[in-house]
Design a binder for these strands. Structure first.
Lengths: 245, 245
DNA sequence: GCAAAAGTGTTTGATATACACCCATGA
DNA sequence: TCATGGGTGTATATCAAACACTTTTGC
């Protein structure tokens, strides 16, 4: 067979929302290359393993998740000739979305890594900064036209929790009243459980489960460029209007 | 270095619009495996070549294109353990969009392949049917929220040509009058050249060049599922209204 | 009662659709 | 002058943004 041989790895951009901020799971490299530097979790693909299986295995090993209702999808492949000093390594980036862990595990990390707000991540080993950026952008744009935001929520959640996911991922604020109507009127997005939850202060919110819908028609439009520049390209969609403190 | 070694290939989903139909470039395999079967064009990645460089090289070799204003992007990677009987081969699918070639080359193919309407493609070698399906779906959805449709057009084109691209790719009809307003009112999508072109019958249309815009805000919504089922999920956007023959 | 969060109703403005209508050309 | 395609104007329906207002809880 013609062609040169590559080692093939999977790397994971594991995102969650903690304290109303979008966070990524990072590990510290122990062995060369780049010892001591932060990196995305990942590893090599095994003998008879498909890519998604390898990514699932790494996710379980690195987070201690058993099975969970997490989302996992392929992002893309990265294979620049010099990206790994050990030789030719192609890595297939994957995006995983986890609900914000409450309680015991919420300290600061998992079996193998620690959580970092995506805006505060500096240099990463290999080309992992690029993979992270691609993963974050994928997550941001998918919130617009899919129901993927629910993957950041526990099995039962309120409309407010879902809204805070959007606000954390996009870095915007959203009018709670219009958001409420929008998501509850999308068919099969949210299934009411009939239960309510007391969040401390204020009227208890209704609990929902995720419905079967995967697409949002019409999409939930974010301002075209709220995170990169402040250009008034277009009137913001779903912006908070009355500036509550 | 741990990990098993893979051969890495790139495969190309090369799409164009010919005779108002979305067509894909297919080759006939000569050597094993799957000799004689139709397949996507592609080949192995070379020693110090990045993925997009390899895909560009294959595109040039297979279509005879010199440089062109074609679009080329990565689709995703496919690495099922048994996808190639020769051994472990990971292939990185790519999507290329070409303008419909007019004149001499419009016969039926290119240096290495022939054009087939995507709806009439049967069995393909390897897992290429899956890669093709993913490429077509990517193209269809990208027309909604990007200006990518212009990649199917020559450097100068009319609004009608652009509309026929949408109609061919989506398999729908679009009201020419509303389409005209929509695309000409999107900032930086179309640059008027000032010239007009006589297409045979009817009033000559104005010629445009592609502008700098890449995103469409708001998106050009197609009916959620016009190609897979006919469910009246939602009123069609931009549907032809007066049923001209 | 007061603050805070959940949730509803309504006004208003933007936009897409449907379609009448005019323009420019070839036959 | 008729058929054909290019292109503009406009009424209507639809939907989202803005925001007043009510409900239900904790303190």
């Amino acid at each position: 067979m013609r062609g040169n041989l590559f080692a093939v790895a999977v790397d994971l951009v594991v995102l969650t929302v903690r304290d109303d901020r979008l966070c990524v799971l990072l590990t510290q490299r122990s062995a060369p290359p780049f010892p001591g530097e932060p990196a995305l979790p990942g590893g090599f693909v095994r003998q008879r393993e498909d890519l998604l299986d390898a990514a699932t295995r790494e996710l379980v090993e690195d987070t201690g998740l058993t099975v969970g209702r997490h989302h996992l999808e392929q992002l893309g492949s990265y294979a620049a000739p010099d990206r790994d000093p050990r030789g030719r390594v192609l890595t297939v980036g994957h995006l995983a979305l986890l609900p914000g862990l409450a309680g015991e595990e919420s300290g600061s990390g998992t079996a193998i890594g620690t959580w970092h707000p995506v805006g505060e991540v500096g240099h990463l080993a290999f080309d992992h900064a690029r993979i992270l950026a691609d993963g974050v952008e994928r997550a941001r744009s998918k919130l617009e036209y899919t129901t993927l935001a629910a993957s950041f929520c526990p099995p039962e959640f309120t409309v407010s929790q879902l809204r805070r996911v959007y606000e954390a991922v996009w870095g915007t604020t959203i009018d709670p009243r219009n958001f409420q109507r929008k998501v509850t009127s999308t068919p099969d997005f949210l299934l009411p459980t009939g239960e309510k939850v007391r969040t401390g202060r204020g009227r208890p919110g209704q609990l929902f489960q995720r419905g079967k819908a995967t697409a949002l028609h019409p999409p939930m439009l974010r301002d075209p460029a709220p995170l990169t520049n402040g250009g008034p390209v277009r009137v913001a969609a779903l912006r908070n209007g009355d500036g509550r403190p």
